Amino acid sequence: MACDGVDLNADQRPERLHPIAAEFEATPDGLYLRWPRHHPEARLVGSPIGWSRLRGGDPDAFSPELYLDDDTVVFVSALCHDKLRMTLQQHRIPMITRRPVWSLLLDPFLDTDYEIVRERCESRLRECGFDDDEMRAIRARVAPYADRYVQLTWEWQDLGEADLIAGYLIDAPDLHAYGKFRRWADHIAARGEMSS
């Protein structure tokens, strides 16, 4: 696949870069996750994830999410929605709902007129504690990754944290840089948590 003169091998295509576990298996030790081949998420998050590390989950998120004790977000395939809900209930893992902080922050990068939704998006972000300067700073930091992802995928409806991470991984950073960026993105996402 080539775009803007950049050749991407099969493991660098945006759909392969999403940090989404394709499947999981619940065992007495915790959740065993199956990651895309050679994905850095496998080394960063690991598998299994012990039950004591799981603080909650949201099977209804666009890409179902698990929340670890250090605010790490683990994305699971939407095809596992029902299985994830049942597993969380069986193991008494709390259901947690979060505002879509990254979707709101990334909305200006979509091929739509942001001015139409600006006040609604930024009002929701303010409810999560973001001020105008912080919103601008975050958007400036992620602009290269969001723009690159949109250029390669032609996404125009919604971007979320998993898409941002895929955009970041296009340039194949080292694991340390990836982990640092990932922790920063996860902490921002955690600010959208709503009490149950």
Results as ranks from 00 to 15, higher is better:
R92N: 10
D107Q: 11
V150A: 12
D58T: 10
V117Q: 09
R136Q: 14
D11M: 15
D71A: 09
P48G: 12
F62L: 11
L175G: 08
R182H: 02
P14H: 04
S123W: 05
Y149R: 09
W51G: 02
D11Y: 03
R139Q: 15
R183I: 02
D133L: 05
L106Y: 04
V6I: 07
P94I: 11
D111C: 15
E155S: 02
L33Y: 05
A78E: 08
L84S: 04
R13T: 15
I93D: 08
R55S: 13
F130S: 03
D158I: 03
L54W: 08
P19T: 04
A78M: 04
V142M: 03
P94V: 07
G56T: 05
D11E: 15
R126L: 01
L169M: 04
A22N: 14
D4T: 10
L33D: 08
D60T: 09
P173A: 08
P59H: 09
Y149F: 05
L106A: 07
S103K: 11
E25C: 03
S196F: 09
T153I: 01
D133G: 02
Y67G: 02
F75K: 11
R148G: 03
F24H: 07
G192L: 10
R53G: 01
D4I: 04
A190N: 01
F62N: 07
A189R: 15
W51T: 04
A162W: 02
W156E: 00
S47I: 02
V45L: 01
L159R: 10
V73Y: 07
V6R: 08
S47P: 06
V76I: 15
L79G: 13
A10D: 12
W154V: 07
E193H: 05
A22C: 09
A78D: 13
R136F: 03
P94H: 13
M1D: 00
Q151R: 14
L44Q: 15
D132A: 12
V101C: 02
E65S: 06
A177Q: 11
R148T: 04
L159S: 14
G167D: 04
E134W: 04
A172E: 15
C121T: 00
A137I: 00
L54Q: 06
T97Y: 08
S123H: 06
E161A: 03
L31Y: 02
V76D: 01
D58I: 03
A172V: 05
D71P: 00
L68I: 00
G57T: 13
F130Q: 10
R13V: 07
A146E: 08
A42N: 12
E161W: 08
V73D: 07
S52C: 09
E115D: 12
R85E: 01
A162H: 14
E193L: 13
R16K: 12
M86E: 15
T72Q: 13
D11F: 03
A22L: 10
D7M: 11
